[in-house]
């Protein structure tokens, strides 16, 4: 369960968003609507002017990034120096989450990770797959995806697989997109415009 009610002013722009959602949530809006700012506030990368962020009842508003149990994934999040296999288990190792070989193989299969090598040398779409799988395997309480589904071919299929995997693992996801129609792939849809979010379903 992700509960957030936050306000932030950035020059002329003012963000005021409230969401209370569990499961797989889509946040749709144009460039400059405040999607990224909102996700960054949830992840602890930007301080809100006012408000609170709670994940599974735990108030994480003032906690540093590494103590929040929330991870933000962007298209540029991958750690370039690691090999694919190391990368996939990097977060899980850090948190001492045990990942069985079967589970690793299943996630790789489901998310189309059938390649190897140094992550920095992969294509953008491959890196997105790796970084999203890494976040999933580290079993965070909240997983925020900032337009990191954008460079994948068979995108819809991927998002559906990702939804199934995160739901099975009990991870709440909020993903942002510029495409309103992505809402049909989610359990909940918020559209955000000019810093204000409206719940569609």
């Amino acid at each position: 369960m992700i509960e957030a009610a936050v306000q932030k002013r950035l020059g002329q722009f003012s963000l005021d968003v409230t969401i209370n959602e569990a499961g797989f949530t889509c946040l749709a809006g144009k460039n400059g609507s405040g999607k990224t700012t909102f996700l960054r506030i949830l992840a602890g990368l930007t301080k809100p002017d006012a408000g609170h962020v709670k994940v599974n009842e735990r108030d994480i508003t003032g906690l540093p990034i590494e103590k929040r149990g929330v991870v933000l994934v962007t298209p540029d999040s991958s750690i370039p120096s690691l090999e694919v296999e190391e990368h996939l288990l990097w977060g899980a190792k850090l948190k001492r989450v045990v990942v069985s070989n079967e589970r690793l193989a299943a996630v790789k299969e489901e998310l189309g990770i059938d390649f190897h090598g140094q992550v920095g040398k992969l294509s953008l779409g491959m890196r997105e797959r790796v970084v999203l799988a890494t976040a999933l395997l580290s079993a965070p309480a909240g997983l925020l995806v900032d337009e990191a589904f954008s460079n994948l071919h068979e995108r819809e299929e991927f998002i559906s697989s990702y939804r199934m995997l995160t739901t099975d693992a009990g991870i709440d996801v909020v993903f942002s997109t510029q495409d309103d129609s992505d809402g049909r792939l989610a359990e909940h849809l918020y559209s955000i415009e000019n810093g204000k979010a409206t719940k569609r379903f």
């Binding site: 990097w90 977060g91 920095g120 965070p140």
Partner: peptide, 25 residues
């Protein structure tokens, strides 16, 4: 900074992020 922020989101301390994510390349 995205990879560093990702690493910290996964729970890596700032020092760990520095040694494991930033230094290798």
């Amino acid at each position: 900074p995205s990879p560093e922020q990702f690493a910290m989101g996964l729970g890596a301390s700032p020092l760990r992020t520095f040694t494991a994510v930033v230094l290798p390349d």
